Simulated assay, not measured.
Amino acid sequence: MEAHLDVAYPFTGTWRVQNSPADRVPSHGTAALASSHAIDFVPVTADGKSAPIRLASLLRTEPPDRFPGYGRPILAPVDGIVVATSDDATDHDAYRGVPSIGYALTQQQRLAGGWPNLAGNHLLIESDGVVIALCHLQRSSLRVTPGERVRTGAPIARCGNSGNSTEPHVHVQAIDRVDVEQARAVPLSFRGVLPHNGDVLDVPE
């Protein structure tokens, strides 16, 4: 039987689902780097919206702190052991409108830098033989170190815009080993459910 990991949501508050394997596999359009079952969550306001789009938003990049979820707490989705962390990547500007086209054209360049370059600030937690990765975290926000045991719901970092990210969000994927470039994807569910693209989740504290 294929491995499967059921986890808690790694946050509270209101978030929108994006790139979900409930809608397509591979969820991100590629099976590379064990991302077939990865899922993205974008922090939004209570009415389900990201930062307001103005004319300037369509013409130039925007600082990440304009977005409602930048810096929101990220929580451990499982009980487990932290097995890897990275915390020094820059939180770059967000890309919407015309700037997003140029950003998309440089995707291959970022891919050539390997998984750490795409993930940005990240941490990996091993639980029952499966490793869960949380990516695009805020620089210098990690509150855990490798070898540390964490409990579900414990604050571990903050939402950022590092790595391959067009706006602040958290990318979650499960894999069968720590070496992401050699790993296989493991299907995920969240409290027994796999949310669909566009779903707006209101996760209580």
Results as ranks from 00 to 15, higher is better:
A31T: 10
L33R: 08
G69N: 10
R184T: 08
R151K: 13
E126H: 07
A56V: 11
P43R: 14
H196D: 01
N121H: 04
S100M: 14
E2Y: 09
H28L: 05
D202H: 12
G97I: 11
I101A: 14
G29K: 12
W15F: 14
I125T: 02
E126Y: 00
V82H: 04
V131Y: 00
H122Y: 09
V130E: 03
Q108I: 04
V131I: 08
R151V: 14
N164F: 09
S50G: 12
D40K: 03
P63F: 09
L58T: 06
V200S: 12
H196G: 02
G69W: 04
E167D: 04
V82C: 09
E126V: 04
T61W: 07
I132F: 01
Q138W: 00
A133V: 09
F190V: 13
L137S: 04
R110P: 14
D79G: 02
P26N: 11
G102W: 05
W15K: 08
R143D: 09
V82P: 06
A174L: 09
N197Q: 12
P64H: 00
G69T: 13
I74G: 10
I39F: 04
R110M: 14
T12H: 14
E126R: 01
L142M: 03
D87Q: 01
G198T: 12
V17A: 07
G192C: 06
V42A: 11
A94N: 13
P168L: 05
D79Q: 02
G69I: 07
P195K: 06
E62N: 10
T12D: 08
V130H: 02
I156F: 04
P64D: 03
